[in-house]
């Protein structure tokens, strides 16, 4: 479904990605962990071309997409993204946040988009908040709207960039539940997170990244309990405590 080959990215003198390879099958959930500054967020943004990689190839369904003749907008329509800081459109209600993409990008008519939007808000448990503005929602609710907004584009895959790390502890559960339900429904997902519970139950594979490289790859059991690399062991030791 998604394949990344030898991906490199520099920001000025900073070498953020030093040749990353990964592959995700259809319906698979891949979790990426790693210390901050290891390039996880940049990697996600290179996959949906929010950041243009310097070199390397990104494939979506077998087609290389980081090419001059492919519009990045076309790629982003098919790969949904959920951000750490939610980034809901502040001047739009929850429902309008969800319907904007279908109406303005896909050209869906307003009534159909609204019906679909309400269904999606119901799916994330927020049917009654359709007319609330982002500032009137809790962090957990905002993040669930953000997931619904991404789903409204009918994406082939979803990228999650630390979706729960900006949340108060009491709201983390509700967001993870929505993500777990998505995973059960067969959504292809790449999730950057440090939620060990979610990673263990939802993901078959975990990647550990450090300093722009993938250091180790394995099942949750292997990564969390029998890591082979010293760096992985130190990092996992810190987050498991």
């Amino acid at each position: 479904m998604i394949r990344v080959e030898e991906l490199q990215k520099r920001f000025g003198a900073l070498h953020v990605l030093k040749g990353v390879n990964l592959e995700v099958q259809k319906g698979e959930v891949l979790v990426i962990i790693g210390p901050s500054g290891s390039g996880k967020s940049t990697l996600l943004r290179c996959i949906n071309l929010l950041i243009e990689p310097d070199s390397g190839r990104v494939f979506l369904d077998g087609t290389q997409v980081n090419r001059r003749d492919i519009r990045p907008e076309w790629v982003r329509q098919q790969v949904g993204m959920v951000f750490q800081s939610f980034n809901l459109f502040a001047h739009l209600t929850a429902l309008q946040n969800v319907t904007l993409g279908p109406v303005r990008v896909l050209g869906t008519d307003a009534a159909a988009a609204e019906a679909q939007g309400r269904k999606l808000l119901d799916r994330v448990g927020l049917a009654d908040k359709a007319d609330a503005y982002p500032a009137q929602l809790s962090g957990g609710q905002q993040q669930r709207v953000a997931i619904a907004r991404a789903l409204a584009m009918n994406p082939k895959a979803m990228l999650f960039d630390e979706p729960t790390s900006a949340l108060d502890p009491e709201y983390i559960r509700e967001v993870l539940d929505v993500m777990a339900a998505l995973a059960r429904d067969g959504m292809t997902m790449i999730v950057v997170t440090h939620e060990m519970g979610f990673a263990s139950t939802a993901a078959k594979r975990i990647l550990f990244m450090d300093a722009g490289r993938i250091i180790e790859e394995g099942s949750p059991e292997e990564i969390f309990h029998r890591p082979k690399q010293e760096r992985t062991r130190m990092f996992v030791g810190k987050i498991l405590r």
Partner: peptide, 17 residues
């Protein structure tokens, strides 16, 4: 906020959109 633009581009809106 720059996150607003990023989120907008992430659902496939163009620069002008």
């Amino acid at each position: 906020h720059s996150g607003q633009v990023e989120a907008a581009r992430a659902i496939g809106l163009s620069r002008w959109g």
